[in-house]
């Protein structure tokens, strides 16, 4: 069984890929249909779904990430901070 990140559910809706096989080490650019706007859309969706609000600085950092696992870790850390 592939380990399932909460992030994956959002990705499947955003990219309409119900059967997409996603792993923590999957790179964003490997997702079919990924384009220049996808990263911002995903970050925004993450803020909405996980009820977090990143600072300017954190957003800059998120834009440097390349894999799903890294983004999930950043979200988890933010949620911990938010309590």
């Amino acid at each position: 069984m592939i380990s399932e990140l909460p992030l994956h559910a959002i990705l499947r809706v955003l990219f309409s890929l119900p059967d997409l096989e996603l792993r923590p080490e999957t790179e964003f650019t490997q997702i079919p249909g990924w384009d220049s706007l996808s990263q911002i859309n995903l970050i925004f969706a993450v803020e909405q779904e996980f009820q977090v609000r990143f600072t300017d600085d954190e957003l800059e950092h998120l834009r440097q990430l390349t894999t799903l696992g890294e983004l999930q870790a950043a979200v988890d850390e933010k949620r911990l901070q938010a309590g």
Binding site: I10, V13, L14, F15, S16, G33, N41, F44, A45, Q48, E49
Partner: peptide, 14 residues
């Protein structure tokens, strides 16, 4: 919601 709409818009695009 943006997420729902974008999901639909992406499907529409494809």
């Amino acid at each position: 919601r943006f997420v729902d709409w974008l999901g639909a818009a992406t499907q529409l695009d494809v």
